[in-house]
Design a protein around this nucleic acid. Structure first.
Lengths: 177, 177
DNA sequence: TGCTGCATGTAACTAGTTACATGATTGT
DNA sequence: ACAATCATGTAACTAGTTACATGCAGCA
């Protein structure tokens, strides 16, 4: 799903600033993806020019002014159209698997180091998930919750797959030769 | 892993043309990723300019001439450096999960349609895997084989996760309301 | 006659990233 | 004194995609 549709989806429920959108995105998909201001603000600009959203400046005291974005009817229509479009096949490019493919060219200790390294970074993903879990369980709609649980299981599966792969590496002695 | 490193990895074992590299890539990572000529040829050009590879034109009769690429010492060094660099966390952006998050805005029949649709595209991934499996089992080195098996399990996990998610959708009645 | 395979390449485009620039307020 | 949070935005860059252009050989 492209950023535009994602942003429109968030705006379907409530008006938001670019800053809000980033927080919301981080909360919703942050454990397996990221979105920077460098792509949000240009996207909002383009969407306003295309008539998918409107914005109004909110003057604030003691905090920077902000631009609250509102979805238009045209925006709602664009969102629905994008949501109904057929899904393509994702590219689950996994950096560890790519390294594993070329492991023959590394020293055994380097193989172990990379594997441990990768599992540590997976752990960071779990930390984020655990951090968000209570808030999500409290505020998410049934589909958002299902999405979260799907993501949680996805992360668990990747983790146990990696653990078993590393175990296979050890048992076959390929981490020592 | 960037294309350059991937290409260097393939060239570590044997000299190849851009065309060969595409075939090899498709065989090795094709079930979860893709690489087009539009990125291979410019990459090879850049790599030759950087001294990572050299190339020689092979004149052929009855077939178009080809440019066989050979890795240089500098290229081998660049490959090793990239292989030893620490791994970042991957972004497992999953298009179905993104849709699921916004499912509240769709009609129940549209939800079912998207879910079935996505599972069909996952099936295509399995078809490719099954097609390649015998060749890989015959020719792959132990690490390449481990990588393939890791990919196979990855695909199985995604599949069963999706199946259970769709089942949860049905059981909760959220596909009917 | 038209499709598939072999083989190389360019041009225009899409979608994002990181780093930078600004600047007040609140908490440690 | 220093960092974090709120808040918006630009510029330069990276990495890729799709569509196009070319052209011969072999097969059905």
């Amino acid at each position: 799903m492209d950023i535009q549709t994602m942003i429109l989806g968030f705006l379907m429920n409530q008006d938001m600033t670019g800053y809000d959108i980033r927080q919301k995105f981080d909360m919703s998909f942050g454990f397996f993806s990221g979105l920077s201001y460098g792509s949000i603000y240009p996207a909002l600009k383009k969407m306003e020019a295309a008539g998918l959203i409107t914005s109004q400046l909110m003057i604030q005291e003691g905090a920077p002014n902000k631009k609250l974005c509102t979805i238009t009817d045209k925006g709602r229509e664009a969102f629905h159209e994008a949501m109904r479009a057929p899904l393509g096949l994702d590219k689950y490019r996994n950096s560890f698997m790519a390294r594993l493919f070329f492991f023959a060219h590394l020293e055994p200790y380097e193989r172990r180091e990379l594997a441990v390294n990768y599992m540590n970074s997976l752990d960071k993903m779990f930390e984020k998930l655990r951090e968000y879990e209570p808030v999500i369980r409290a505020y998410a709609d049934p589909f958002e919750l299902l999405c979260f649980e799907c993501g949680l299981r996805f992360a668990e599966d990747v983790m146990s797959n990696m653990q078993d792969t590393v175990k296979a590496l050890e048992e076959s002695g390929l981490d020592k030769t």
